[in-house]
Amino acid sequence: MIEREQYDPGPANVARIHNDGEKRTLVLSRELRHAPEKVWQALTDPAHLREWAPFDSDGSLGMPGATVNLTTVGLPTPRVTETRVKRADAPRLLEYNWGGFDLRWELEAVDGGTRLTLWINIDPRFIAMGAAGWHICLDVLDRLLAGNPIGRIAGPKAMVFNGWKRLHAEYARQFGTESANQAPKAEH
């Protein structure tokens, strides 16, 4: 696990916010040095998801209309949410819902690799947290695809990780969101 110990998520330049009127959508975009077909498999196959995603799936996410159970990683008691795959247009577009948030994955072939874009209509209070978490997940995905898996860094494992804390602070500053965790102040 030397790779994992040396892993540093780099600058907070993977996520941005897309504003559409009142609606704020978290968008992460990065180029992967792998073909869309290979990236698609990592996004949909349960054995691949287990290596990088913040949830486990009990079935393939690659079948439109399929119903699968997604189990959030690293909780004291299992949290399972049922989801229906809304769109699965291999290897270009994947849409499903995770715990109330719509996830939309776009894969675009560029120079033998893939430009991967993730859109999430995450709760605005957690937008910087989500940006940091998914930033790290996509890094882990990139290394997995390159044949250098460093092991999933998600849930509580991500939050105790120094890179996550720095990313969270940097994204919160960029997005102009307050930190969700402050010491209580006396109000009365």
Partner: peptide, 25 residues
Amino acid sequence: LGFAKKADFSNGPYRWLTVASPEEP
């Protein structure tokens, strides 16, 4: 009740949310 938010973390569908007393942060 007048308590103050102490921790609020989200992990997908899960939310860890706590409050504390402002008299005893």
